[in-house]
Design a protein around this nucleic acid. Structure first.
Lengths: 357, 357
DNA sequence: ATACCTACGGGTAACGTTCCACGATTTCCT
DNA sequence: AGGAAATCGTGGAACGTTACCCGTAGGTAT
């Protein structure tokens, strides 16, 4: 029952010109007189005509860009999206977002679905697929990877400097006297499994390890791989608390994970930061909430989003040289990190301080 | 430099059949022998062929559904998306998400962009556009509205029962002895402005007013309109605290707003729930966090998302009769609501209890 | 043997847009 | 004045897919 669409032909008839003419004013191409332009514009408005995106796409024109997000719940991602949308504000491009699965297969399916929809380009946020797969995708459509330090000849990358970020956290915690500093890493970023040069090794976890080693704490390094969700944070802390000597500080790879960690610690009767310090990553709005006040590594999401969008536009514009842009993070210290408890400290004794229910 | 796409013609040539034949096996239509089918399938796999979405769309076939979200930060929305994705799991449909602006104009632009992309249907989450505009849109594409109680002959609606939801909160707070119960409502839901029958009146705010009246607290009803964001919650509380007699309870129309309210109250030196009680709406994962533990009206986001997707599929399948599905919310009480302070209570005196920095 | 069905496969006209090539007119230059 | 150049507008062939319609081959009932 959907009324048949009004086409460029209808507009042409109504304005008594050719469809080519209408097409020209639509794309404001060369060769159209002001008189005709106004007539066509009037006809368009009168008929409420809107160009058919699919038909345009068939001719190779597109006005949508795709953004692939691993997860809608991560509070850092809206910042990226806002940045992308801002940069695209004065262009004709429109953003569509697609949620990738938690696994490379789902991610691949989602990105191909985006391409089948003939988007003009894609921003892949923290993708799971190995670089080789992305090279293939980049052959079909301009690609910018956001949040992974890939070096590819065919697509661009925008990412925070993990070495600096992890270093800041570890140095901060070590400076507070912590030695047993554990790290909750992203399980999805599995080192491979087939022995093939698959996804590059998790750079955040590696940076953590190097920072620990640099500070002479290499023996205390302890990585738990878990999902980058609140639930993952809970599970990770659950595992850490079963260690013979649980850590006194937890460096979560994402704010959401840190939030889960905070919850699990609280439920275990441990005080933050009295018994255990917790730090997150991304400094999303969640970290800044008064009731959470999470120490976190600040990454300028808006800037990163804008940069990714800019690179994508450049690629679409014809740039073939590859770009790699690194962004240096900073540390925002808040109330979840404090001096390490004294060596003989018994966490359970601290429970007397807990005044909340 | 993007390599030219492999088309259905390439597949046909490679399998030595006609394009019609390939098209048939693609849609597994009638009239194709098993032998040919396997040959074509082999060719498809060998060439890595993927059907061109835009070309299909031009012929009237589509396999994407659009979801329009007002805001990526609202923690309730991912639940809806997950519900929609779940329901669509075993169909060929793929979801794309688009972020509407904060104003009706931006929303309209976003939904039309979606339609131009020839989606097969759209789910509009808490739309700002007046029903009349949605009727127009529903003429072009199947529409389901999620989170607003519209009764339209041309599109469906799935929504929580606001009367029950607001009633539960107000009764809960009144039962705890509160009288000055204020409400933070959505400013975007402006009652109109032109005198035209624009967007219907904010049902949540109205339900709040009726509940207050029903309990004999009509004189205490106090609505502050603010944006449905964390910042909006802060601003709303700021305004409420400037009242001659500030409220002892705040009913925020969304969890995110309640979070902002909590932050502002804390910064004002007020204790929650000692001095002021706070309740939210949607019972998103944010409300359940141990560090927040917000009393909130529970709406089953997953179910609502699934229902919306189901209705959309039915519409696409040809149903023309309109559906309206109301979902009854429940109340989850947590630690942000408690008995009202005694009449002579001086909030400032309570500051002695504040132990945190 | 003829007519009729069924199963299988191909030919081809759309779908709505863009853009190249090419007329038709006017303006400019010497 | 004669032609070149600039300007304005049109025709029509794609783009990749689908769906209708029509052959053909073999089988079966009359």
């Amino acid at each position: 029952m959907t009324a048949s669409r009004v086409t460029i032909g209808d507009v042409a008839r109504h304005a008594e010109v050719s469809t080519s003419a209408v097409s020209k004013v639509l794309r404001n191409a060369y060769g159209v007189s002001p008189a005709m332009r106004t007539r066509v514009l009037a006809a368009i408005k009168e008929l409420g005509y809107r160009p058919h995106g699919a038909a345009r796409a068939l001719r190779g024109h597109t006005s949508t860009l795709g953004v692939l997000l691993p997860d809608l719940r991560n509070p850092f991602f809206p910042d990226l999206i806002d940045g992308i949308a801002e940069e695209l504000g004065d262009t004709c491009y429109q953003v569509v977002i697609s949620q990738a699965g938690r696994d490379p297969a789902g991610e691949s399916r989602a990105v191909h679905a985006l391409i089948d929809q003939s988007v003009g380009g894609v921003v892949l946020v923290a993708p799971l697929s190995p670089p080789a797969d992305l090279e293939v995708i980049a052959k079909a459509v301009p690609v910018v990877v956001l949040g992974r330090d890939d070096r590819s000849p065919h697509y661009d990358a925008v990412f925070g400097d993990e070495e600096v970020g992890a270093g800041l956290v570890v140095e901060h915690l070590a400076g507070l006297g912590h030695r047993r500093i554990a790290h909750l890493a992203d399980a999805a970023w599995h080192g491979s499994g087939r022995g093939e040069p698959a996804t590059p090794p998790d750079p955040r976890a590696h940076a953590y390890e190097r920072a620990m080693a640099r500070l002479g704490l290499g023996a205390y390094a302890d990585i738990v791989r878990t999902s980058y969700t609140e639930e993952g944070g809970r599970a990770g802390v659950g595992e850490l608390l079963r260690r013979p000597e649980p850590p006194t500080a937890v460096f979560a790879g994402a704010d959401l994970v840190a939030i889960g960690a905070l919850g699990a610690l609280r439920e275990a009767g441990l005080d933050v930061p009295g018994d255990v310090s917790v730090a997150g990553y991304d400094n999303s709005w969640l970290a800044g909430l008064a009731h959470i006040s999470l120490t976190s590594v600040d990454q300028p999401g808006l800037t990163m989003g804008r940069t990714a969008a800019r690179l994508l536009l450049e690629r679409i514009g014809g740039r073939t040289a590859s770009a790699r842009i690194s962004i240096t993070p900073t540390l925002v210290t808040r109330r979840t990190t404090a001096a390490a408890p004294p060596p003989g400290h018994n966490p359970d004794a601290a429970n007397f301080n807990v005044t909340e229910i």
